[in-house]
Design a binder for these strands. Structure first.
Lengths: 145, 145
DNA sequence: CCCCTTTCAATCGTGTGCGATTGATTAATA
DNA sequence: TATTAATCAATCGCACACGATTGAAAGGGG
């Protein structure tokens, strides 16, 4: 069906562009902290719960070691977190926040709040967009046997 | 406002994931043709109108030479298109489809149609998602003076 | 006709994403 | 216990994105 392809193409392209624009927004907001969006995702996960393994972080963010290993190394170099091999299982890599990583939570969130407020999206629009995206994600995540 | 940050974070993360899933879908569909999603975008633009300059393609796709130059080179190597310096303006690079690039349009679209149909999204859901994404893109694209 | 500005593609460096493989460590089982 | 299987992070290679710079070519003004 031509219509369906056309809509799918358009939707994919619009998601692709929305993602790039959101990324641009976060870059602008996070650059003063020398953070990327992916790194901010890791910080959020660790603010939520500290001392997660690379594997656990990967499940939350849907990323695996090929992406996370170098990303976490850069974040350790920048002083956000530390990586540690637990004695109980030396295969794993457990990540915990540094003092800097904890203390910067408030200023980072303040910076994002300031920047977000410049975009005039209503709570309703956020929630509708979220609900629809969730449908799309569910549809795209289904196992395609 | 904590709620607004939270919603923006969630929305951004969901768009980020929807984009990755869509990309995964297109990779699966386009790999038999040895195409990536970005390359497919270029093909679509050229099927719509052949003989566009790198600059024009960049305006449609919102990409510039740092991304397009290597991408187009790979596509030329793969036989999809040819790059040419027009005599009228030797700064520009005009792209035109090869016979292969034209002939593969139908089979590629057929493959995508087959794959798309496995995801059961309704026309309505596509259109709602598109409309909302457009709002987001508009909001994020506004000039931030 | 020369100089200056503008407009291009190309290049460079960095940071993801991700399929695939590797190698170390732990668990399971015969 | 010895062997095999499973589970980890790390590594490799490739293809985007994109800010920044470079250098060539064209245009415009004096």
């Amino acid at each position: 069906m031509t219509l369906e392809i056309d809509l799918a193409n358009q939707l994919c392209f619009s998601i692709y562009n929305a993602n790039r624009l959101f990324n641009k927004f976060y870059v602008e907001t996070l650059t003063p902290f020398k953070l990327t969006y992916a790194q901010y995702l890791v910080l959020m996960a660790l603010w939520e719960r500290d001392d997660q393994s690379l594997h656990e972080l990967g499940q939350v963010l849907r990323l695996s070691s090929n992406t996370l290993t170098p990303l976490l190394r850069r974040m350790e170099d920048a002083g956000w977190l530390q990586r540690e091999r637990p004695a109980t299982d030396r295969r794993q890599l457990v990540i915990h926040l540094t003092t800097q990583g904890k203390q910067q939570q408030a200023p980072i969130e303040a910076a994002i709040a300031t920047c977000i407020s410049r975009y005039h999206l209503t709570i309703d629009e956020y929630q509708q967009a979220l609900a629809l995206n969730q449908k799309i994600i569910t549809a795209l995540s289904q196992d395609l046997a």
